[in-house]
Design a protein around this nucleic acid. Structure first.
Length: 480
DNA sequence: TACCCTTTGAAGTGC
DNA sequence: GCACTTCAAAGGGTA
């Protein structure tokens, strides 16, 4: 069940997750009832999904392939064990093992109270913070940080803002959970640590780690370029791989750590330029240049800036104040749901296996694989998504998904493809993994779409799964 | 250049 | 409560 932590009590434990699992569970129950027909159906369904894995990696164990990508068991287990051990000691046993082993640090028992009675951070929270902010010095042994904590905890009304989780999000920046997710193998070079870090220290977290076996899945991806080209103290805020990050809500900074998070002038610029005044901390070290770091200029900011220039040149153009306000609003993206998290993690693998790049096709495969996941495996992602939503809610209490609706509800932003009644989607009925089951279409006169997405169905002599116009109308398809 | 495609899930709206 | 819509990610394709 998704509520692995048990006990319920989590307001955010969406019922939909339960429903989803119920569906899966029903499916499994049906299978367990020895309903052969349904079992066959499930097998077919599963085989369709898993073809992409078994064919491409015929040498590998298919069952192993059905599972999430191999991870560093030793590292994961050790990390988890050490964390759990520490957490159990410090958190009174409240810490429950992370439901998803790939995210060993994100299950925070209580983000609102990460402090020990002596005022220091609990190991759990410390680990969490280090995962979130690799440059944030919250090491227990750091006198500087301790002093900073002491100073910051001095009673200053301006600092006492909230207990929000000090997590940073920004469109196109690293998602708070992103560092924990494998998005792309090509962005990670385990054996290439940054020069300033010892080889056995995670360049992202600074946490010592055992050496990575070469075959493990990189769970702490960090592009070599990112490592080697840290251009800015806020490099961890700088867009990486186009991954979004929750924008900083300075109200979200718990003020034991302001020195670590707000000493930087660029940070203050970033905050000042990115967020409305009420969201920017009244910190004395902030200056008001308002010049954001080039790397963290978002489209919104760019647009705003350019419009300001235009406005200065063409003062006759008066923009509607409401529109301006809307444009000034930081675009807070929706938290990722379970499937989105799964997609982010597995996309690279599918791309590598299938040499496909078109997301539409990849997403179809991922959708199939998602359904083929076991209940437990899905539960990991549902739990992760739940945490994501929880975090998002804490960061943006007033945010609503409606805020991101363009043109409002009912006014379509984009034209949606009309589906015929009974039609599921273009390929759902016949979709076979194109890169595996079917030879590629080599006829250069075929539409790129067909060549790129699908192979040739030799039996039916059409464009494999999609049965597209090309395959129906064009004869003489060159078979590979 | 903006949108489409494609997936699932969350959340919003309207009836 | 149900049906419907939009958006979240991704990146090649298309108009």
């Amino acid at each position: 069940m998704p509520q692995l932590n048990g006990g319920g009590g989590d307001d955010l434990g969406a019922n939909d997750e339960l429903i989803s699992f119920k569906d899966e569970g029903e499916q499994e129950e049906k299978i367990s009832e020895n309903s052969s027909a349904e079992r066959d159906l499930a097998d077919v369904k599963s085989s369709l999904v898993n073809e992409s894995e078994t064919n491409q990696n015929s040498s590998s164990d298919s069952e192993a392939e059905r599972r999430p990508p191999p991870r560093s068991e030793s590292f994961r287990d050790k990390s988890r064990e050490s964390l759990e051990e520490a957490a159990k000691r410090q958190d009174g046993g409240l810490f429950k093992g992370p439901p998803y082993p790939g995210y060993p640090f994100i299950m925070i028992p209580d983000l609102t109270g990460p402090y020990l009675p002596n005022g220091s951070l609990s190991p759990t929270a410390r680990t969490y913070l280090q995962m979130k902010w690799p440059l944030l010095d919250v090491q227990a042994g750091s006198l500087q940080s301790r002093q900073a904590l002491k100073d910051a905890r001095s009673p200053s009304p301006a600092h006492i803002v909230s207990n929000k989780v000090p997590v940073v999000q920004h469109p196109h920046h690293v998602h708070p959970l992103t560092p924990l997710i494998t998005y792309s193998n090509e962005h990670f070079t385990p054996g290439n640590p940054p020069p300033h870090l010892p080889a056995d220290v995670d360049p992202k977290t600074g946490i010592p780690r055992p050496p990575h076996p070469p075959d493990i899945s990189p769970y702490y991806p960090l592009s070599p370029g990112t490592v080697g080209q840290i251009p800015h103290p806020l490099g961890w805020l700088v867009p990486q791989q186009g991954q979004p990050v929750y924008p900083i809500t300075t109200g979200g900074f718990r003020h034991p750590y302001p020195t670590a998070l707000t000493v930087n002038a660029s940070m203050s610029s970033f905050l000042s330029s990115r967020f409305p005044p009420h969201m920017v901390p009244p910190h004395h070290s902030l200056h008001t240049t308002g010049i954001p770091h080039p790397a963290i200029v978002t489209p919104t900011v760019k647009q705003e800036s350019s419009q300001n220039d235009v406005g200065s040149l063409h003062s006759s153009k008066h923009q509607d104040s409401k529109k301006e306000e809307e444009k000034k609003k930081p675009h807070i993206k929706k938290p990722l749901n379970a499937f989105m998290l799964y997609m982010k993690e597995m996309r690279a693998k599918v791309v590598a296996e299938c040499t496909l790049k078109e997301s539409a096709a990849i997403n179809q495969i991922l959708g199939r694989r998602w359904h083929a996941l076991s209940r437990e495996e899905q539960a990991k992602y549902y739990e992760l998504a739940r945490k994501e939503r929880q975090l998002h809610m804490q960061l943006y209490p007033g945010w609503s998904a409606r805020d991101n609706y363009v043109g409002g509800y009912g006014k379509k932003k984009k034209r949606k493809r009309d589906k015929q009644p009974g039609e599921t989607n273009e390929h759902s009925e016949c979709f076979l993994n194109p890169c595996l089951s079917l030879p590629p279409i080599t006829d250069l006169s075929a539409p790129k779409k067909c060549r790129a997405r699908f192979g040739l169905d030799q039996q039916n002599n059409w464009c494999g799964p999609c049965r597209c116009k090309y395959s129906k109308e064009v004869s003489g398809i060159v078979r590979a």
